[in-house]
Nucleic acid binder design. Structure first.
Length: 261
DNA sequence: ATGCCTACATTCTGTAGA
C-alpha cells in the first residue's frame, strides 16, 4: 500500500496538478494539507472520477485538510482533540480496514508559528504540538498501525535544510520546536524517511521566492510519523520532487511511504 | 533590513504562508 502526504497549497488552484499526480503516482491513501477551501467548494467530482473516496475538513480561505483514498474509511474524525475553542481546520483522521486489521491515517497541518516572537502565533504552534503529543500518546495505547502524516512545519535536524543557519530564529527550527518534535519520536514514533535512508540533505519544500527551487534551497518539513506497528510494515519511502518542476506547482512535494498492508 | 512569490477574498489591497 502506498500512502502519501502533500501540502498542495490550494486545491482549487492545483486541481490539474492533483489529478495528474493521482493518475501518475496512484497512492492508495493521500493526505492533503492547505486545501484552502470550504468542504462545499472542494473539487470532489474530479477526484471521485479517478476512483477516490474524498473526506475533507475545510475552512474558508486558508488551512484545511483532506483524505483521498481508494477504499472508503470505516470511520472519520475531524479536528485535533484538546481545545474546543480552536477553529482552525488542521486535522482529520481516517480508519481503514486492511488485511489483518486496521490502519489509522491522519492528515495534519501543524501551525507555522512565525513570526516566532509573535505573542499569539508561536504559542499556538507549541500548544498544538502538545495536543498532538497527547493524541499520539492516547492512540499509541491502541497498539495499532498509525500514520501521522502531514506538513509539520518542523525542520527536525540541521541536515534537513540547505543552510540551517538561515533558520535559527525561525519557528520551524527553534529549539523548542525541535524538542516538541523529538517528544513525539520519544513516544515511539518513527520518521519514515529517516528510517529508510541516510541520504542528506532531503527536502520537501522549496519557497516560491528568490529562485529557491533552482538553487535547491529547500527544507524537509513534511513527514510520515509511524507507530511501531506501522513501522514494522514499512518497506521504503520516496519524495516525489519532480512535481515541483511542473507548471504552477505547489511549493511542497509529496512524501510517500510503501507499506506491507 | 526588506522583498523576493503565490493563493485567496475582496479588490484596485491585505492576510497568510515558510
Amino acid at each position: 500500500m502506498k500512502i502519501a502526504t502533500w501540502n498542495i497549497n490550494g486545491v482549487k488552484a492545483r486541481i490539474e496538478n492533483l489529478c495528474q499526480w493521482l493518475r501518475d503516482s496512484g497512492p492508495d491513501i493521500a493526505c492533503l494539507q492547505e486545501i484552502k477551501s470550504v468542504d462545499e467548494g472542494f473539487p470532489r467530482s474530479e477526484i471521485e472520477a479517478l476512483g477516490y473516496h474524498v473526506e475533507t475538513h475545510g475552512q474558508k480561505g486558508f488551512n484545511g485538510v483532506a483524505l483521498l483514498s481508494k477504499m472508503k474509511p470505516d470511520e472519520v474524525y475531524r479536528g485535533l482533540p484538546g481545545d474546543d475553542t480552536d477553529e482552525q481546520a488542521r486535522f482529520i483522521e481516517g480508519v481503514f480496514s486492511v488485511e489483518g486489521g486496521v490502519v489509522r491515517v491522519c492528515s495534519l497541518y501543524l501551525p507555522n508559528g512565525n513570526p516566532s516572537d509573535d505573542p499569539v502565533k508561536y504559542p499556538y504552534k507549541l500548544a498544538w504540538m502538545a495536543r498532538l503529543e497527547a493524541f499520539a500518546r492516547e492512540r499509541m495505547a491502541l497498539e495499532e498501525p498509525l500514520i501521522l502524516a502531514g506538513d509539520y512545519n518542523v525542520i527536525p535536524e540541521p541536515h534537513d535544510a540547505k543552510d540551517a543557519s538561515q533558520w535559527v530564529t525561525d519557528a520551524l527550527f527553534l529549539p523548542q520546536t525541535r524538542a516538541a518534535f523529538r517528544r513525539l519520536e520519544n513516544l515511539g514514533f518513527i520518521d519514515a524517511v529517516r528510517a529508510t535512508t541516510d541520504e542528506a540533505p532531503l527536502f520537501s519544500f522549496w519557497d516560491y521566492q528568490a529562485g529557491a527551487w533552482q538553487k535547491n534551497n529547500g527544507i524537509r518539513i513534511d513527514h510520515l510519523m509511524l507507530s511501531p506497528e506501522a513501522s514494522d510494515r514499512l518497506r521504503s519511502t520516496d519524495i516525489e520532487k519532480h512535481v515541483r518542476a511542473w507548471e504552477k506547482p505547489s511549493d511542497h512535494v509529496p512524501v510517500v511511504g510503501y507499506f506491507n498492508f
